[in-house]
């Protein structure tokens, strides 16, 4: 079964921004990530899934329900993390989370256990009875995630979930998402943090200017889009090194004693580059070679789009 089916989905705003013809399918038990720059239409697409946008054309089915037909039944089976963390500020975090769990019709004893588990996972148990107005930005974000996770939804829909959240919690969240996928539950993540998305084992798509540029896997994108190696050289003292002649070297950036070189995947050229540096008076104190990451694939892909 497909949990999300979009066919020719268009939701444009007066400024020409928004979603401009998206065809996409997310399967049951799959984690799907949508990556793109700010303002590329990710949030609009995510809001469409949450049923928050009117005035669109095309077909949108969530968990088999026709959203365009006004169905709200699917909302009980999904959990939503919106781009903003909205809470009732004078109530405690626990009271806020309780309301959401109750609305999802969880049995009270299960709610108590589940919320306790999630608050502890977020390192927020000690602050659970404090009013939300006393929470930091990151704590509010964590609370929004607790509210979305509490009923273990069939489909979890998240917009920029890691913004402002500490790495300890994002690591735990990644683990929870991997466990969800292993349990056959589906997750939709929209964001612009490729490093985190890289850790949640997901199929993903790049989006720009309201359109899907490409859909695939992290491995596939790295191979396809970013066949480069990054070489980082630390110099013992500050010497200006000129750029080597163009060839396998794609870019050569120097910042004081640090040089970042991107080469095509021909590691055999590294000794030549080292020789070039030494010849021009550089003392190499450290050398790191790293393969491409999703981050580079993201930058390259959205960069390509910009040039076009």
């Amino acid at each position: 079964m497909n949990v999300i089916e979009m066919d020719g989905l268009v939701r444009e705003y007066g400024t020409g921004k928004g979603v401009r013809g998206v065809n996409l399918t997310v399967h049951e038990g799959e984690c799907f990530a949508l990556l793109g720059r700010n303002g590329c239409g990710k949030s609009t697409l995510t809001r469409l899934i949450m049923g928050l946008e009117d005035g669109y054309s095309g077909s949108l089915r969530i968990l088999g329900y026709d959203v365009a037909g006004g169905s709200r039944e699917y909302l009980g089976k999904i959990g939503c993390v919106m781009d903003k963390s909205i809470h009732w500020e004078d109530l405690s975090g626990w009271e806020n989370a309780w309301f959401f769990a109750k609305t999802y019709q969880m049995p009270e004893d299960a709610m108590e256990r589940r919320l306790k588990e999630l608050f502890e996972m977020a390192d927020m148990m000690e602050r659970a009875r404090d009013p939300v107005r006393e929470y930091s930005y990151g704590m509010r974000r964590k609370l929004a995630l607790i509210e979305a996770f509490c009923h273990n939804p069939l489909l979890l829909v998240m917009d920029e979930p890691t913004t402002g959240v500490d790495p300890r919690f994002t690591g735990r969240m990644a683990e929870m998402i991997r466990n969800r996928t292993a349990d056959g539950l589906s997750t939709w993540v929209a964001g612009n943090d490729p490093d985190w998305i890289s850790g949640i084992n997901t199929r993903l798509a790049f989006m720009d200017s309201g359109k899907i540029l490409a859909i695939g896997t992290e491995k596939g994108f790295i191979e396809e889009l970013s066949p480069f190696q990054k070489v980082r050289v630390s110099l013992g003292r500050s010497v200006k090194i000129p750029s080597p002649p163009q060839g396998v070297v794609v870019s050569f950036d120097q910042s004081d004693k640090e040089i970042t070189i991107i080469i095509e995947q021909e590691l055999a050229f590294i000794p030549d580059i080292m020789e070039w540096i030494v010849t021009h008076g550089g003392e190499v104190s450290d050398l790191q070679v790293r393969g491409s990451t999703l981050r580079e694939a993201f930058l390259l892909k959205t960069g390509e789009m910009l040039e076009q």
Binding site: E89, L91, E95, W98, F99, K102
Partner: peptide, 17 residues
């Protein structure tokens, strides 16, 4: 108070402030 519906939520928020 642990609100279970929107009425309880709004009323609790009003009384909490």
């Amino acid at each position: 108070m642990r609100p279970g519906n929107v009425f309880q939520l709004d009323t609790a928020a009003f009384l909490a402030n």
